[in-house]
Simulated assay, not measured.
Amino acid sequence: MSTVTTSPPLSPSLTAAYRYCEIVTGQQARNFAYGIRLLPAAERRAMSALYAFSRRVDDIGDGPLDDATKESRLKETRDLLQQVRAGEIADDATDPVALALADAADRFPIPLDGLDELIDGVLMDVHGRTYETWEELRDYCRCVAGAVGRLSLGVFGTVPGAPGAERAPQFADTLGLALQLTNILRDLREDAAEGRSYLPEEDLRAYGCTEGFNRSQPQRGADFDGLVRFQVHRARRLFADGYRLLPMLDRRSGACVAAMAGIYHRLLDHVAAEPAAVLRGRVSLPAPQKALVAVRGLAGLDARRAVRKRP
C-alpha cells in the first residue's frame, strides 16, 4: 500500500531543510545517494532526512570527543528524537535535520524507534565493545543497519496484496545486516587504526587472526583469506535472504533498494576476489560501475542473480 499521506506543500523553511539533508547525503553517502535518486521526490526527501539524522549520530560516535562528551551528545540527540516523535518541532525550528525529519515522519509511517536503536548501537562503539560470537555481532548490526532497513521500509511501504508482506520488516532488517557486514570487511584496517574490532572473536581465533588488522599484510601464520571468505559467504546468505523484500516493493522503491544493495554486493565480490586488498585501503567501486548497478537495479537483474545463488 502507498505510505505517503496527503500533506500541504513544502514551506520555504522545509524546502531549505530538505535541501540541506540532500546535500549531506550527496557528500557523505555516495552509495546511498545513488540508490535514492531513483525514488519519487517525497520519498527521496524523506530518505535524505533519515540519512542526515543517522549521519549526525554516527559523527558523534566517530568524532574526536571524549567518551563522556559523546554520551552526553548522544543523549541530547535522543532527546531531540523524542521531540520529533512528540510533534514538538516548530515550523520555524533552526535545526534543518530535525525540521526535515519531523515533516518526513508526518508524511510517512516511519518507525522512529529504529533511530533509538541506532543510538544504542553507536553507544556500543563508544564503550569499545567487542563481539565474541556472530550472534553478538548480529545484535550490533541490527541496531546500526537493520534498524535503518526498517526505517526505510516505513518510507517505501509494500505493494497491496504482496504475498508474505508481513515479513517485509524482517527482510529489510536482514538486508541491513548484509550491508553492515560488508562495511565491516571493507573497513577492517580503518577500524583497527581507531582501535575498533568488529569481527567475532571466535572467528578471529579459528583463522589465527588475533593480532588485529592495522598493517598492510596479514599476520604470520594467519589464514586471513579464509577468514574474509567465511564472512563473505555469511554476507551473501544475508543478501540472498534480504532480497526477498524486493517483490514486495513498488518498482521505484525496489529499484532503489536493489541499487544500494547491488553496490555493496558488487563490493563484496571485489573483497572475495582479493581479500588482502582491504588491508591496503578502503575498497570501493568506480562511479561508472555504480551507475551500471543502478541501471541493473531498475531492471532487477542483480537481485535475481543473488537470489539464484542463494546457498
Rank of each mutant, 00 (worst) to 15 (best):
M1D: 05
V4Y: 13
P8W: 15
P9Q: 06
P9C: 10
P12V: 05
L14C: 07
L14I: 05
L14A: 09
T15N: 14
T15S: 13
T15K: 10
T15L: 12
A17K: 07
I23H: 10
V24S: 02
G26Q: 09
G26R: 11
Q28L: 10
F32D: 00
A33K: 05
A33L: 01
Y34S: 15
G35C: 06
R37F: 07
L38I: 03
A42F: 00
R45M: 05
A46Y: 01
M47L: 13
S54W: 09
R56Q: 12
R56I: 13
V57G: 03
D59V: 02
L65G: 08
D66V: 12
D66R: 13
D67G: 14
A68V: 11
A68W: 10
D79C: 06
Q82H: 14
V84S: 08
R85P: 02
G87E: 09
G87V: 03
D91S: 13
L99F: 14
L99P: 05
L101K: 08
A104F: 07
F108P: 07
L112H: 15
D120K: 14
E132L: 13
D139G: 15
R142Y: 15
V144I: 13
V144L: 10
A145I: 09
A145R: 02
A147G: 11
A147C: 15
V148F: 12
G149D: 08
R150P: 03
S152N: 12
L153R: 09
L153V: 04
L153I: 03
P160L: 15
G164W: 00
P169Q: 02
Q170Y: 13
F171N: 00
A172Y: 00
D173G: 12
L175K: 00
G176K: 05
L177Q: 14
L177G: 09
L179E: 01
L188D: 00
A192S: 14
E194W: 10
Y198R: 07
L199G: 06
R205D: 02
T210K: 08
N214I: 07
A222H: 01
A222D: 00
G226F: 06
V228W: 01
F230G: 05
F230Y: 12
F239V: 06
A240W: 00
L246W: 03
P247Q: 02
M248P: 00
R251A: 15
R252L: 09
R252M: 05
C256E: 11
I263K: 04
A273W: 08
A277T: 02
V278I: 06
R282E: 08
V283F: 04
S284T: 14
P288S: 01
Q289V: 12
L292G: 08
A299F: 07
D302Q: 11
A303R: 07
R310H: 08
